[in-house]
Simulated assay, not measured.
Amino acid sequence: MIKVNPYLNFQGNTEEAFNFYREVFGGEFLMLQRFRDTPDFEKLPARDHDKIMHVSLPLGQGNILMGTDSLESMNQKLHKGNNFYICISTESEAEADKVFNALSTDAKVEMELQRTFWGAYFGMLTDKFGVQWMVDHSSEEQDRDQI
């Protein structure tokens, strides 16, 4: 495995939270993408277009704090305990399959491993213990720090 990074979910205030974290930890965002920058964004209510789809902030040597706004318009409701994921970035699709399939035992799969519009091989699940996981493999051409 290449990296294990926290992925935080917020109810509409991701930008505020990450600006605060940037002040605390320093550095610059590796990526800040809004929902208006995604395919089919026009299917979302206008109030969600400027919400954060993905943001990443480097922390120290090789660690990245990542986050997103959970959208009620997409039936995403947050409460304590479901407001974060552990993101596993693998070295190959085969390793991603192995990890995802093992974690999937008695799990609730939210998104099967698949190619995404951002070019990653990616899936999400909540394991049998209630821990939320993202499994990701990005191709060699893609800058891994942009995940």
Rank of each mutant, 00 (worst) to 15 (best):
F29S: 04
N101E: 12
R36A: 10
E15Y: 08
E140R: 07
N63E: 04
R144N: 03
L44Q: 09
P58A: 05
A17Q: 09
R34W: 03
D106G: 09
E93I: 09
L78I: 12
N13K: 10
E15T: 01
Q132N: 13
C87W: 05
F100G: 03
V24C: 11
Y7E: 05
V4P: 00
T126L: 01
R22T: 05
E72N: 10
V109C: 12
T68S: 02
L8M: 05
D48R: 03
M74P: 05
F129I: 00
T116W: 05
K80I: 03
S73M: 04
L103Q: 11
L44Y: 02
A46M: 15
A46E: 15
M31D: 12
E112K: 08
N63D: 14
T68A: 13
H79Y: 10
R47C: 11
P39T: 02
I64K: 14
D145M: 03
H79M: 10
D136L: 13
Y7A: 01
N83Y: 15
Q61F: 09
G67Y: 08
K3E: 14
I88R: 00
F25M: 02
T90W: 00
A107R: 09
E28P: 09
Q11P: 14
F41G: 01
E140M: 04
E72L: 13
K3M: 07
D145F: 02
E72P: 05
A46D: 10
L103K: 04
N83D: 12
A107I: 05
G60K: 02
Y121C: 09
L103I: 05
E15D: 11
P58W: 11
F20A: 13
T105G: 03
H54E: 01
N75D: 11
G123H: 09
W118D: 06
H49Y: 04
Y85K: 14
G81Y: 03
N101Q: 08
A46F: 15
Y7P: 03
Q132A: 12
I88K: 00
K77C: 06
G67Q: 12
N13P: 06
G81D: 02
F20T: 06
F25N: 15
P58T: 13
Q61C: 03
Y7S: 07
S139G: 06
H137Y: 09
N19Y: 15
K77P: 01
M124D: 01
R144W: 14
V24P: 10
E95S: 10
A46W: 11
G67E: 09
F100C: 02
I52P: 06
S89C: 02
Q142I: 15
E140A: 13
Q76R: 12
A46C: 09
L65G: 11
Q132E: 03
M111P: 00
D37R: 04
P45D: 11
K108G: 01
G119C: 06
V135L: 08
M74T: 14
S70F: 13
S104E: 03
A46I: 15
A102R: 08
Q114C: 04
L32G: 02
W118K: 00
N5I: 05
W118V: 00
E23D: 06
K77D: 05
D37E: 14
K128P: 11
F29W: 15
R144A: 07
G123P: 04
P58K: 12
A94H: 07
I88L: 10
M124Y: 00
L59R: 03
E140S: 12
V135Y: 01
F122D: 01
K51I: 08
D40T: 00
Q114E: 14
